[in-house]
Design a binder for these strands. Sequence first.
DNA 1: CCCAATTTGTTCGTATGTATA
DNA 2: TTATACATACGAACAAATTGG
Lengths: 261, 261
Amino acid sequence: MKTEPLNLTPLGDSGGTPLYLQVKRALLGLIESGACRPGQSLPNETTIARGLGVSVGTLRRAVDELVHEHVLVRRQGKGTFVAQHNSERFMFQFFHVEPRADPRFGEVVQQVEYPTVECVAFERDRAGEQDTLALRIKQGEAVLRFENRLSLGGRAVVHDRIVVPASLFRGLTEKRLLDRPSTIYSLYQTEFGITVLRAQERARAVAADRTTARILGLPAGMPVLEVHRIAMTFGERPVEYRISTIHTQLHDYVSVRSRSG
Amino acid sequence: MKTEPLNLTPLGDSGGTPLYLQVKRALLGLIESGACRPGQSLPNETTIARGLGVSVGTLRRAVDELVHEHVLVRRQGKGTFVAQHNSERFMFQFFHVEPRADPRFGEVVQQVEYPTVECVAFERDRAGEQDTLALRIKQGEAVLRFENRLSLGGRAVVHDRIVVPASLFRGLTEKRLLDRPSTIYSLYQTEFGITVLRAQERARAVAADRTTARILGLPAGMPVLEVHRIAMTFGERPVEYRISTIHTQLHDYVSVRSRSG
DNA sequence: CCCAATTTGTTCGTATGTATA
DNA sequence: TTATACATACGAACAAATTGG
């Protein structure tokens, strides 16, 4: 949580791009390079602004956007921090399954329930065609595949099939996956220095295959929701490809959580 | 597109709420009340700011948020306008079906294709239990129900079952629904003064019932995606409840469209 | 084609309020 | 209480896009 003296070189003239965007990139660069680690605080606003040779207002605008993108977190009276992955963030930004509710779902804020996770498979493998396209890696490149079963209220609801490039996750074993204290994205961040910033998802309805049916405890052929997710880090680089199969008899897939108006 | 002299009374002291939020509410009130109609321009920033007795910066912050929420649209050199529903906005904000693409969907920006719409049913009815909960109306209140078939590339892909309170849409007939020149939300806005601002959606996989199977031309029992949407106007008031059944064999449900990083 | 008026976009600097330790 | 940090609010200057002459 300490404040290191950062290397804040004045910005180079970057053509016609607005100054606050240049500042944003500079900050992103500092974070991506590891000069500021997740959880650490940045220097205060006047210090950064002076270091970069811009006004406080310009810096604030850049920080505003990074806060909006969950890259930074501001706390009045305390400072500005590099965002850390925790279960709260995971539930809010990346977990899109909720118990079926009354249709006045806008009304009451649902109690969010963190799922129970079991690892049901883990293997080293080579990238197939789907993986190469999703992860932008070469055919046959080493990948890690693992599968999780997620339960809510004691019921198996989600079957995750996850594939990541082995090169980014050297030393990831089933044991380390099981022993993680927090969410999987927290593990990525803490143990491998990989920060998932956002994800793209596409959903479709399919008939449950035998494997998924067994894992979720439902008859094969039952309609289930299949969500394909590509998770990205800085520079829109894909780092994880995940196919989540969701048993949507008692739960829904909710794309965006409600906000204030 | 003309600039009427608006009734810009200075803000009343509203306790501890920040000034820019009070300004935001004042602007929302002006729009909701109909003093500024969709497509019309607002007075310029200095005029509004002076009218409300705030600085330009404070006004701009309020407008910033309203632009983010698609309530206002700013155009440099031209002015600030009350947002209008058109097909572009519909596709971007409310249409979540895309042809199945390579899994590098982050890569190429898909060509968006506006769907062909056919009305396959229209009736006056009374609200059932689901409708009362979703639309926050009383049991038995008059509603309009209609069903559309949406096609992409000549294939029937979506079956919409839409229900709206009849009280908000007096004079809506099947003919007017068919004759609309633009999107359905544009019709709501132009003909009935109802502006849909945002929507909440929940998705699940189900087996296609006979009606939907017939309309979409697929075997009954096939897994399809069922999306429940509540569309809201100002003050989070629900104005439309829609169940979209999507044939996801060649198309995906995409929750949020990609943005820049 | 250029000029001038209008409007939003960007940047600066400063002062004051509020939460935290 | 005090010091520090972010949050809000103000005002001013110049840049860039648009429109019409």
